[in-house]
Design a protein around this nucleic acid. Structure first.
Length: 245
DNA sequence: AATTGCATCAACCGCCTACTA
DNA sequence: CTAGTAGGCGGTTGATGCAAT
């Protein structure tokens, strides 16, 4: 894309916002496929993108969380993380042991099966947290009976979705506030991820599925830094798990 | 100075999933 | 329930720049 096209695309996004990418080429007057426009915006033009070399703390977080969150790193584009991972880190990683019957569902702020508390009144309810999982995770909570959806039309809504994912009923102020770690890398994790909670689906030999919401940060902070990837099985269960027959 | 090999990173491609009519 | 469409992700490619020879 040329510089002029970048400007057109940027103006278009500023005017209409992100999303409905199929309309972006027409709106911006660009002769590019919708995916190209989206990629250009997300990986290059978006204003809050952090560019330049990865600092040690970021690499630290990446190593610890890559197996769980994939190419998600606060402030960085997925493409950047992916490139860095493939270039530098993949070769160094110890081959992970097979993860039997465990599936980690990464947080994806799409539509939810149940609306979040729009007053940002975090009630630390693990059932609520389960219901707040994106509808893509179809194993989750069929007992709510509420099919209304929640859209992430602005950043606040997405932040709320994360907050909901992060809540821990035992430690209302969040793990990050209760852990005293001196290492700068750990501090970075706390600042960057707060108290991210990870959803893990386990299936036993009889096909019974259990969904567990596990606090990520505490385990991440205790995880080794010797190149091993963090595996879901290393996480200790917490809160009220849900069992689906 | 020219050539070669490697590193980097933006972009492409194909597939999967969610949504909707 | 099904098919079509859009959004998103991961694997991969290709252009470019730089260092080594």
């Amino acid at each position: 894309m040329t510089e002029e096209e970048d400007i057109l695309l940027k103006k278009c996004i500023e005017k209409y916002g992100e999303g409905t990418w199929h309309r972006v080429p027409f709106r911006a007057g660009l002769n590019h496929y919708r995916k190209s426009c989206r990629l250009r915006w997300l990986n290059y033009l978006k204003p809050d993108i952090k560019r330049g070399a990865f600092v040690d703390n970021e690499v630290d977080v990446m190593i610890r969380l890559h197996n769980l969150l994939g190419n998600i790193l606060p402030g960085r584009t997925a493409n950047d993380v992916k490139n860095y991972w493939n270039t530098y880190l993949r070769k160094k990683m110890v081959k992970p042991s097979p993860k039997l019957n465990i599936e980690v569902i990464k947080p994806r702020p799409l539509n939810l099966s149940v609306p979040l508390d729009k007053n940002n009144n975090n009630k630390n309810d693990s059932d609520h947290a389960a219901a707040s999982t994106p509808a893509s995770n179809s194993l989750v909570s069929s007992d709510s009976g509420n099919n209304s959806s929640y859209d992430f039309s602005n950043d606040n809504n997405e932040i709320m979705w994360w907050k909901n994912m992060l809540m821990n009923e035992d430690e209302p102020q969040g793990f990050g506030n209760n852990i005293n770690h001196s290492a700068s890398g750990d501090q970075f994790i706390i600042e960057a991820l707060g108290d991210v909670r990870t959803q893990v689906v386990e299936e036993d030999n009889y096909g019974k599925t259990t969904i567990k919401f596990q606090p990520m940060l505490k385990n991440v902070l205790n995880s080794p830094l010797n190149g091993e990837e963090v595996l879901a099985k290393d996480f200790t269960p917490c809160n009220k798990d849900k069992t689906i027959n």
